[in-house]
């Protein structure tokens, strides 16, 4: 065997190994999708799409599986957390980018990244023992601290590391000449950052928002402890509510039969929701690039 053929076989093996790895990921997504739809869709049709999606009565004992209230809660909570976390995160990133003294940049960035290493159940416990009592004592009108207000505060903290580090990367990746040019033309530091650098980094910041949104949508363990858990529309900031993910997690270990299938059907709705959100964001993003 010549050294050339040996090299070619080696290359072939590596190529196939890489291909298999890629195949595994695709295989996983196909299996999960098939599992979800094969189990969930027949259930949704059997219950009736309108009853499943537009009724808010979720009572397992009576066989009513309506997810409208939980769907609305999921959307409202995700929007609140993404918005709050997005604003806080972007401003934090800007602060680290240009407004912090050099020797503080590393430690502050390190502290924020540390947040992403904390298990989500710890966030939940923090929310349960600090945020919920505080809201109940000082802000709530009905003496209860559970609800979307506490949940969105907890989620806001959880999406911060993603939001901050990704927007900071985006800001750092923009050409510093823009900034210097703006200063040279007589703009202040604030104007240069907010009017030149942030718009220049908008595509990266948008990507950060999408990822934060995904995390807020999928987060279960943290919100399950502070949401309250009753199936209600979020008619107030401190009304006990339940999200779709919380609904699945609450029942997944205990329920059987039709009740369990109903949870898989909730999973289908979440799956479609994730696809929709990603699709809408992708559309926005491609539009933004063309402008």
């Amino acid at each position: 065997m010549t050294s050339a053929t040996l090299a070619r076989t080696k290359e072939g093996i590596i190529k196939w190994a890489l291909f298999l790895c890629a195949l595994f990921a695709i295989f996983a997504i196909i299996v999960i999708t098939v599992y979800l739809f094969a189990n969930g869709l027949p259930f949704i049709f059997q219950t009736g799409i309108d009853k499943f999606l537009f009724s808010s009565v979720w009572n397992l004992n009576a066989g009513s599986y309506g997810i409208a209230a939980m769907l609305v809660t999921t959307l409202v909570l995700t929007a609140m957390a993404t918005l709050g976390g997005g604003v806080f995160g972007l401003l934090t990133a800007i602060c680290i980018y240009k407004f912090l003294p050099r020797f503080l940049k590393k430690p502050v960035g390190f502290c924020i990244n540390l947040l992403s290493g904390i298990p989500s159940v710890i966030y939940g416990l923090f929310g349960l023992s600090v945020v919920v009592p505080f809201i109940a004592d000082y802000l709530s009108l009905n003496a209860s601290g559970y609800g979307i207000l506490s949940a969105s505060i907890v989620l806001m903290i959880m999406v911060l590391p993603t939001m901050v580090s990704m927007s900071l990367d985006a800001l750092n990746a923009t050409d510093p000449m823009y900034y210097e040019g703006a200063l040279a033309l007589g703009s202040t530091k604030e104007e240069a950052v907010f009017k030149i650098m942030v718009p220049a980094a908008k595509s990266g910041i948008f990507a950060a928002l999408v990822l934060s949104c995904g995390r807020a949508l999928g987060e279960t363990m943290a919100v399950i402890l502070v949401l309250g858990g009753s199936v209600n529309y979020p008619t107030g900031l401190t009304v006990s509510v339940r999200t779709l993910t919380a609904n699945i997690a609450m029942g997944a270990m205990e329920l059987t039969g039709d009740d369990l299938t109903a949870l898989v059907a909730c999973g289908v709705v979440l799956f479609v929701l994730t696809l929709l959100i990603n699709g809408v964001f992708a559309l926005f993003r491609s539009k933004m690039k063309h402008v």
Binding site: N59, N61, A62, L125, L128, S129, V132, P133, A136, N142, A143, S144, G145, Y146, I224, L225, G228, G229, S230, N232, V239, S240, R242, A249, M250
Partner: peptide
């Protein structure tokens, strides 16, 4: 038996969460 939860009930997962809920909420 089999009745739905009262309006605005707080649902806690597990015995430890129930204890934490009562400890942290005066009412």
């Amino acid at each position: 038996k089999g009745q739905p939860d009262v309006q605005n009930a707080i649902i806690q997962q597990g015995t430890a969460a129930v204890l934490a809920g009562v400890k942290n909420s005066m009412y």
